[in-house]
Computed example of a mutant assay.
Amino acid sequence: MAEVRIEPFEKDGWTFWRVRLGRRALTFHEELAARAFAAQLHLRVRWLRETEALKQE
């Protein structure tokens, strides 16, 4: 499973923040909102990986 990433980018003189997980992405106007979402997403992905690992045992 892919890692959660945050990427800043500029468009029309504005800075936006893109949170990516694999091919999927969500764009935010504010860095704090992007970081909060990425942190929650990271926790959820980690939980899913741990849950899947327990099922395979």
Rank of each mutant, 00 (worst) to 15 (best):
M1R: 08
A2M: 04
A2F: 07
V4Y: 09
V4K: 07
V4E: 09
R5A: 06
R5Y: 04
R5T: 15
R5E: 14
R5L: 11
R5F: 05
R5N: 06
I6P: 09
E7G: 00
E7N: 05
P8W: 12
F9L: 12
F9Q: 08
E10N: 05
E10M: 03
K11I: 05
K11Y: 15
K11G: 07
K11L: 13
D12V: 03
D12M: 07
G13A: 11
G13D: 13
W14F: 13
W14N: 13
W14P: 00
T15Y: 03
T15I: 13
T15D: 04
F16G: 03
W17L: 00
W17S: 00
W17A: 00
R18Y: 02
R18N: 05
V19E: 04
R20C: 15
L21M: 05
L21N: 03
G22D: 11
G22W: 07
R23I: 09
R23M: 11
R24G: 03
R24F: 03
A25W: 12
A25D: 09
A25Y: 13
A25H: 13
A25M: 10
A25I: 06
A25P: 00
L26I: 04
L26H: 03
T27M: 02
T27K: 06
F28P: 00
H29L: 13
H29M: 09
E30F: 10
E30N: 11
E31M: 10
E31R: 15
E31W: 07
L32Y: 08
L32N: 12
A33N: 07
A33K: 03
A33W: 02
A33H: 04
A34K: 01
A34R: 01
R35F: 08
R35Q: 15
A36W: 06
A36S: 11
A36D: 14
A36Q: 14
A38I: 14
A38G: 10
A39I: 01
A39P: 01
A39K: 12
A39L: 12
A39S: 11
A39V: 03
Q40A: 06
L41F: 07
L41M: 14
L41R: 09
H42Q: 15
H42F: 01
L43N: 09
L43S: 11
L43C: 07
L43V: 06
R44F: 13
V45C: 09
V45N: 04
V45H: 08
W47M: 13
L48M: 02
L48Y: 02
R49K: 10
R49P: 00
E50K: 04
E50H: 05
E50L: 05
T51I: 01
T51L: 09
T51M: 05
E52P: 00
E52Y: 02
E52F: 01
E52C: 01
A53T: 08
A53S: 10
L54N: 13
L54V: 14
K55I: 03
Q56V: 05
Q56T: 10
E57M: 02
E57Q: 02
E57C: 00
E57G: 02
